[in-house]
Nucleic acid binder design. Structure first.
Length: 367
DNA sequence: AAATCGTGGCG
DNA sequence: TCGCCAAGATT
């Protein structure tokens, strides 16, 4: 873009923002704690989903000090259902960093912000520009879409190496007096006008600036390679009830659904010995009993299928199909080798369960 | 550097 | 039902 072109674009773009700017809870002021929290929640998550979580989280943890001192159980419970749970753990790590390493005063540059847990290049740019006026791009999916279409940038946005191409293209377009507004304008324009499907760029004053719109190639951008589809995984969930309540399993502290609680789960794959021979239902039940004995020292009784449809749940890279079983165990069973415990209905309300567990419970309760 | 890590909405 | 998408970061 020529300098005069660039200036015309900036003027039109900021004018669009001044007229169409969304009024969002995290835009009430520019306190870093509030902006940071919103940016973490908004990673890969839509505004509509985030709003109620944001309000609840702020009410529960009003300051960075409150968050740094929060019990993990309450932290996860407040995050329950939002997904990508490492965000919640990193949120508290970063809160502790701010309190302990920065004496409760937020670092004010994108470079320093990136040292905090869970803050990468996008989030650092967003906070630095919005809260501290740093002239730096905040390159998210919206930015990739808007600027690939504006400038007809052919670089594959999936390849991290290409991020610098966008960085270099966007940086000179940022008005030096309004970097935070510019980045937020990109988000609003990207999510309301320059959308993935049914974009309406042509209805705005910005249309003349969009090179891809001018030549009818708007929908050819951004260029991105396709992702692999979720890999199918078969599991069994064993619903075990006693006078103490239900037996729930706490997942490991790393990996999928880390630290969350579900019915005891067994991957069908872990029941096979050698080759991928399909097991008959009878044989599967026998092996599940053996598995509980070997892995946890627990003896299952009355193991049988629950007569409901299997529960399916799609993650980013996995598709779970879960067959529900029910069983009992002796009430004096030793749980020393089982990573979980009995939960009464009241106790269940206090702990964080992933959506897939809620689905399973709902399916089981539909009997 | 490719894989991992949730969930809800929409065509 | 399915594929794609939504304010990415971490390993």
């Amino acid at each position: 873009m020529t300098p005069s072109e660039r200036e015309a674009f900036q003027t039109a773009f900021m004018a669009w923002y001044d007229e169409h700017r969304r009024d969002l809870p995290w835009r009430q002021n520019q306190e870093p704690y509030r902006v940071w929290l919103s940016e973490i929640m908004l990673q890969q998550t839509q505004v509509q989903t985030v709003i109620p979580y944001y309000e609840r989280f702020l009410a529960t943890f009003p300051t960075v000090e409150d968050l740094s001192a929060a019990p993990e159980e309450l932290l996860l419970k407040t995050w329950e259902g939002l997904g990508y749970y490492s965000r919640a753990r990193n949120l508290q790590k970063a809160a502790k960093q701010v309190v302990d390493d920065y004496q409760g005063k937020w670092p004010q540059t994108s470079a320093e912000l990136e040292k905090l847990a869970g803050i990468g290049p996008y989030t650092a740019g967003a906070i630095a520009s919005i809260c501290f006026g740093e002239v730096v791009p905040a390159i998210d999916g919206n930015a990739f879409r808007v600027f690939s279409r504006l400038l007809k940038i052919d670089a594959d946005i999936v390849n991290p190496k290409n991020r610098s191409i966008f960085y270099d293209a966007i940086l000179p377009l940022i008005p030096k007096d309004r970097p935070g507004d510019f980045n937020q304008a990109v988000m609003d324009f990207g999510s309301q006008v320059c959308t993935a499907k049914n974009p309406t760029v042509g209805d705005t004053e910005l249309a003349p600036f969009f090179r891809s719109y001018q030549d009818g190639t708007l929908l050819d951008y951004p260029v991105k390679t396709k992702k692999a589809k979720p890999k199918p995984v078969a599991l069994f969930a064993v619903v075990i009830e006693s006078e103490e309540g239900f037996l729930f399993q706490k997942r490991p502290s790393t990996g999928l659904l880390a630290n969350l609680t579900t019915y005891p789960l067994v991957m069908a794959e872990d029941l096979q010995d050698g080759e991928s021979e399909l097991l008959m239902p009878e044989e599967q039940m026998t092996r599940i009993e053996a598995y509980f004995k070997e892995a946890y020292g627990l003896t299952l009784a009355h193991l049988k299928p629950v007569p409901v449809k299997p529960v399916t749940h799609v993650f980013t890279h996995l598709k779970w199909t879960i067959t529900l079983l029910s069983a009992t165990i002796a009430k004096d069973s030793d749980l020393a080798f089982f990573p979980g415990e009995w939960y009464s209905k009241a106790a269940l309300a206090e702990i964080a369960m992933p959506t897939v567990q809620k689905k399973m419970a709902q399916r089981f309760d539909s009997l």
